[in-house]
């Protein structure tokens, strides 16, 4: 995806952060996106920085992804996750009710730190391949997204395409919020046929 463009173009720097409860798969999503692999290990993250070049909307982006610590001992907003973060992925696991419940309080924290409820946020229900162990229904996720004025997506980090779409969706939200992109409809991404971006239903990829 990260094509080395033939004509010289400068890349835009965009910083995003991935947040959520422990053990929901934040690192898995990030690594799926940046390295296209699903880590089969089991490690607690404290903080990781990843970079990836990504081309979308006819532009090159230098996407810097901060993988944060879920463990409550570590402060929610680490230093590198400072004010220049342009958007958030708020992750929960569909097989873990607590991780979903905690999302709204993380959201509140984000808003209270940034003071701007319009900051682009995407709520991600991860592990949707574990459908048999599902305890958080898709509707609940949509409901939460509505309350937070955020987009909602259900994915599994085991699949590449969907993960990339999530990051693209976030990028689009960021660009729209900065006025670099005119609001929808946009044809660049295939599945986004919605005419109303505020309707979270249209963003569900599951």
């Amino acid at each position: 995806m990260s094509s080395t463009a033939t004509q010289p173009r400068y890349s835009l720097n965009r910083k995003v952060a991935v947040m959520g409860y422990p053990h929901v798969g934040k690192s898995s999503i990030v690594q799926r996106f940046t390295q296209n692999m699903f880590p089969d290990r089991y490690e607690t993250t404290i903080e990781d920085q990843h970079t990836k070049h990504h081309t979308a909307f006819h532009r090159d982006f230098n996407l810097r992804v901060t993988d944060t610590a879920g463990q409550q001992e570590y402060t929610v907003f680490p230093r590198s996750c400072s004010l220049d973060v342009a958007g958030f992925l708020l992750v929960y696991a569909i097989d873990d009710r607590k991780s979903f419940d905690i999302c709204s309080s993380i959201y509140e924290k984000i808003i209270s730190v940034y003071g701007d409820p319009s900051i682009p946020i995407i709520i991600v229900g991860n592990k949707c391949d574990l459908g048999t162990q599902r305890v958080v229904q898709q509707e609940e996720g949509k409901e939460l997204a509505k309350q937070c004025e955020a987009k909602f997506v259900e994915i599994t980090a085991r699949e590449t395409n969907r993960v990339n779409e999530v990051f693209e969706l976030l990028l689009r939200e960021i660009e729209i919020s900065r006025g670099n992109l005119r609001g929808p409809p946009q044809q660049q991404t295939k599945e986004q046929t919605s005419s109303d971006p505020n309707d979270p239903k249209n963003c569900v990829i599951s």
Partner: peptide, 23 residues
């Protein structure tokens, strides 16, 4: 239990060196 020395260390380090009060 998949609790490796590294994992346990990461989880506990933040509790044993720092307290809520200090934060």
């Amino acid at each position: 239990n998949r609790a490796s020395v590294e994992n346990l260390s990461k989880v506990f380090a933040a509790s044993l060196f720092v307290t809520d009060q200090m934060t």
